[in-house]
Design a protein around this nucleic acid. Structure first.
Length: 299
DNA sequence: AAGACGAAAGTGGTTGA
DNA sequence: TCAACAACTTTCGTCTT
C-alpha cells in the first residue's frame, strides 16, 4: 500500500487509535480501522492451542516456526503394513527422544513465554508485523547462543523490540517500552547493549526525524509543520548539532520551532509532554538550533 | 495569569584511568 | 572500581505577552 499524499510505502497501523498512518508524512490514510488481531488472550501454549481457530503460515513468532515433525504411534510404514520388529524398537526410541528434545526442552518453554510477551508488547505499542517477526528472530538467536541465562525473559524481549524498532526507523523510546513491559529503563538499556555486543547487531544512531511525525500528529500539527521540522533537522544533522544530544529533545525542539515559524504555535510544555522531555531541554536545543541555523522567529 | 527564558544545583549513566 | 564528565531534569526567579 502507498500513501496517497507522498507515495511512501512506510504505512503504520496504529491499533490504539484505529488509524492507518503514513510514517513518512504523517498523513492519516484511514480511520476507524478494524484490529484484525485475536480478541482473546492466552498465557501459555495450551491455552493458545485451544483458543486459536486458524492455522498460521511459517512464522518465527511460533515456537517451532510452525514446522513440526510428528512421529505417530502406529508402527506402520507408508503403505500401512507393519514394520519389522527391529524398526519398531527403533521408532520407539526415536519417539522418546523426539519428544524429549522438542516438547519439553527448556528452550521451547522459554520461547513460548517470550513470544507471548513479545506479541503483547508489540500490540500495545502498535508495531507492524515485520518488526514482530524480526524481533522474534533476534530473540531466537539470543536463546540459541544461550544469552538469556541469568536474565529475565521479559527484559530480553523488551531489548530485542527496542533494537528492531530502531533498526526499522520507527523508534520507540526506552520510556515507552519500559512502561508496557514493566522492566526498568536501565535494565532494558543494559540488556540491549549486551545483545548488541554479543550478537553483533548493527544499530544505526536514532535519527530524530523519525520522531517528528509522531510528535506532530499528537500535537495535531499540519503536514507543512512536519516538513519544516524535518528540513530543520536535516540542516542540523549536516552541521553536526545532533551528536551527543538526545534525539527526542532535538526532534521536539525542531517541531516546536517549525510550529512557531508557520504560525501553529504550541507551548513548550505541550511539546515537552508528548516528547517526554522537559521544557528546559527544548529551550536548550531551541537556542542551539536558532543560533547555528540562523533562524529568526517572526514576531 | 500563563508562558517563555535562563541560571544553578541535582541526577543517572558513560567513559577512561 | 572510582572519579570526571556530559546530557538532562528540577527548581526557582524574572521577564514578556
Amino acid at each position: 500500500m502507498r500513501c496517497p499524499e507522498c507515495g511512501s510505502t512506510a504505512i503504520i497501523r496504529d491499533y490504539k487509535r484505529g488509524e492507518l498512518v503514513c510514517s513518512n508524512c504523517g498523513y492519516v490514510i484511514d480511520e476507524n480501522m478494524v484490529d484484525f488481531g485475536p480478541e482473546w488472550r492466552a498465557f501459555d501454549a495450551d491455552q493458545r492451542n485451544k483458543r486459536q481457530r486458524t492455522g498460521a503460515p511459517i512464522k518465527y513468532t511460533k515456537p517451532n516456526k510452525g514446522l513440526v515433525t510428528e512421529i505417530d504411534k502406529y508402527n506402520r510404514d507408508i503403505r500401512g503394513s507393519k514394520l519389522p520388529s527391529k524398526s519398531q524398537s527403533q521408532m520407539y526410541r526415536l519417539r522418546k527422544w523426539h519428544k524429549r528434545s522438542s516438547i519439553s526442552s527448556s528452550m521451547e518453554r522459554n520461547l513460548t513465554i517470550a513470544l507471548s510477551e513479545l506479541s503483547r508488547i508489540s500490540s500495545t505499542l502498535g508495531l507492524p508485523n515485520n518488526i514482530r517477526e524480526a524481533a522474534a528472530l533476534l530473540y531466537r538467536k539470543a536463546v540459541e547462543k544461550g544469552l538469556i541465562r541469568g536474565r529475565l525473559i521479559e527484559s530480553v524481549v523488551a531489548a530485542v523490540i527496542y533494537t528492531k524498532c530502531r533498526q526499522y526507523g520507527i523508534p520507540r523510546t526506552l520510556d515507552e517500552i519500559s512502561e508496557v513491559s514493566g522492566i526498568p529503563k536501565k535494565e532494558i538499556g543494559r540488556t540491549y547493549r549486551f545483545l548488541k555486543k554479543e550478537l553483533g547487531v548493527d544499530v544505526p544512531l536514532t535519527n530524530p526525524i523519525h520522531y517528528v511525525a509522531r510528535f506532530a500528529s499528537e500535537l495535531e500539527l499540519s503536514g507543512e509543520v512536519q516538513e519544516k521540522a524535518k528540513e530543520l533537522l536535516g540542516e542540523a544533522i549536516t552541521k553536526g548539532l545532533i551528536s551527543g544530544r538526545g534525539p527526542t529533545g532535538v526532534a521536539a525542539a525542531a517541531v516546536y520551532i517549525a510550529g512557531v515559524i508557520l504560525g501553529e504555535r504550541r507551548t513548550q510544555k505541550e511539546v515537552a509532554d508528548v516528547a517526554g522531555v522537559t521544557e528546559v531541554t527544548i529551550r536548550n536545543r531551541y537556542r542551539e538550533l536558532k543560533r547555528e541555523l540562523g533562524i529568526k522567529i517572526a514576531g
